[in-house]
Amino acid sequence: MVWTSGAVRAARRIATAAAVGGGGLTALGAVTYGLLMAEAMVARRIVGQPHGLDGPQADGVYGAFPGEPIRMAVLGDSLSVGLGMTRPEDTPAVRIAYGLAAVAERPVRLTVVGQSGAASVDLGVQVDRALETRPEIAIVFVGANDVITATLPARAVRHLQKAVRRLREAGAEVVVGTCPDLGTVRPIAQPLRWVTRRWSRQLAAAQTVAVVEAGGRTVAFADLLGPEFDANPAEMFGPDRFHPSARGYLQAAYAVLPSVCAALGLWPEPEPVRVEGSQYLLAAMAVEEPGTEVTATRVAGRAVGPHGRWAALLRRRPGPLPNA
């Protein structure tokens, strides 16, 4: 398994570099960094911008239920806006809003502040906008553009952690969908597709550590979206072969909804299978286990153990999303 000592060390190294302000190139090295940057430029030219930069306008109140709406903000990159979709109900944000409303039996007031092409460095401005709505729950999708633009992992993680901390300090629960597996993206050629897969997973593990430290929780996207996207690219990807199709976006919403509901104390299912351990080990494990959630916990009354902060890995079994 990839989550053995090497992956744990990589997550720890990136997280440490983020904390002290280092670059954190990780084991991929400077030469690979340069090659990846060149390949990313080629991939971007191939993909282009067939959908423009905006998804459909999705802000609004969802769910025909009585009561005060739950305030939900969605931040991040093209996944947050559902780039390529023409109907709001096909975007992940609206799918999650409908699902949350059905579980809570309350309407959900959705505000999307994400933007296509955004990387972790752009989260600061998005948090400013999100906080204007006083969100009770914030969902962040970020990481893919950090890999595509060859942003140093520690720098990306540092921006993400700051964003999560600001949202938590304002009283919002935070769920982060970590970096997806870009090794499934066909416009990125081999052998660098393998490199992007490795970098994606290292970044996802480091994101998990940073988010847990800041008081949020994560949902692992790499292995959840990777196999199905890899096996069924025509169905899961849109026409540009980079952004998801409606079915691909539904898969993302399906993965995140249980953790969103759980963060608000609403998930009606029995307690999921739970594993406790060092945040570094569980971060690396989560990258390899579809849809797992990682959140902070205490062991014997202690938040920190001999190998770092204690965390819990939760294997949830989501139910079907309501029809939009």
Rank of each mutant, 00 (worst) to 15 (best):
T4K: 14
S5G: 11
A7G: 15
V8M: 11
R9H: 12
R9S: 15
A10V: 12
R12T: 07
L25G: 13
L25I: 14
G29V: 11
Y33V: 00
G34C: 00
M37I: 05
M41G: 14
R44C: 02
I46R: 14
Q49K: 13
Q49S: 14
P56R: 05
P56H: 04
D59R: 04
Y62R: 00
G67Y: 09
E68H: 06
L75D: 10
S80V: 06
V81Y: 08
G82R: 04
G82P: 02
G84L: 09
M85L: 13
P88S: 08
A93T: 00
A93Y: 02
A97H: 09
A97V: 00
Y98E: 04
L100D: 00
E105Y: 06
P107M: 02
V108W: 02
T111L: 10
G114D: 05
Q115F: 00
A119S: 10
V125T: 09
V125R: 13
Q126E: 09
D128N: 10
A130H: 01
L131N: 08
E132M: 14
E132Y: 06
T133V: 01
I137Q: 12
I139M: 01
V140M: 09
V142P: 12
N145K: 06
I148H: 05
T151P: 10
L152A: 15
V157Q: 02
Q161V: 04
A163Y: 12
V164F: 00
R165N: 05
R165F: 05
R168I: 01
G171K: 01
A172M: 13
T178F: 01
T178V: 08
G183K: 02
T184R: 11
P187K: 09
W194K: 15
R201G: 03
Q202W: 15
A205N: 05
V219M: 02
L224S: 10
F229T: 10
P233Q: 10
F237V: 01
P244Q: 06
S245F: 12
A253P: 03
V256A: 00
S259W: 00
L264A: 10
L266M: 07
W267N: 08
P268C: 02
E271H: 11
S278C: 02
Q279H: 12
Y280F: 08
A286H: 00
V287K: 06
E289W: 11
E293Y: 02
E293T: 15
A296F: 05
V299W: 15
G301T: 14
A303E: 15
A303V: 12
P306E: 09
L313F: 11
R315E: 13
R316W: 06
R316P: 05
G319I: 11
N323M: 01
